[in-house]
C-alpha cells in the first residue's frame, strides 16, 4: 500500500464518518433492543465521564454537525493510534 493509497483509504473513512454518520439509523442496536425487551436497559450507565459521549461533541447545537465532528475526530484518532502502534511493532522487528 503506497502513500497515495493510504491517503485515499483514510479519505474514504473520513467521508463515511463525517458525511454519512449523521444519516445512520438511530434505532437501537441488537443488544440495546434485547435489553429494552427484557427490561434491563436502565441498568446500563457510564462508570466514568468521557469527552464526547454518544458520538456528540459537546457545545455544538446542531446534532448532525456534532455527530459528524465526533466521527471525524474519532477516525483520525484511531488512524493515528493504529499507525503508531503498527510502526512501533514493525520497528521492534527490525531491531
Amino acid at each position: 500500500m503506497n502513500k497515495k493509497e493510504l491517503l485515499f483509504g483514510l479519505l474514504i473513512a473520513l467521508v463515511l464518518a463525517f458525511l454519512f454518520s449523521p444519516l445512520a439509523s438511530s434505532w437501537p442496536d441488537g443488544l440495546e433492543k434485547v435489553a429494552e425487551g427484557l427490561g434491563f436497559l436502565e441498568r446500563g450507565g457510564p462508570a466514568a465521564p468521557a469527552p464526547a459521549p454518544d458520538y456528540l461533541v459537546p457545545g455544538i447545537r446542531s446534532e448532525a454537525l456534532s455527530t459528524a465532528l465526533a466521527g471525524l475526530t474519532g477516525t483520525l484518532l484511531v488512524f493515528g493510534a493504529s499507525l503508531g502502534l503498527a510502526a512501533l511493532l514493525r520497528r521492534k522487528r527490525a531491531r
Binding site: L14, S21, A24, G74, F79, R90
Partner: peptide, 30 residues
C-alpha cells in the same frame, strides 16, 4: 505492508461502526 493497511482498516472500521443500518422492526446493526 501490514503497517499502513492496519491504520486504514482501523480508521475505516471505526467509521463504519458509526453507520447503523436498519435491520428489523426498530432495530439496527452495524
Amino acid at each position: 505492508r501490514a503497517v499502513p493497511l492496519m491504520a486504514v482498516l482501523a480508521a475505516f472500521i471505526f467509521a463504519a461502526q458509526m453507520l447503523n443500518f436498519p435491520v428489523y422492526a426498530g432495530t439496527s446493526g452495524h
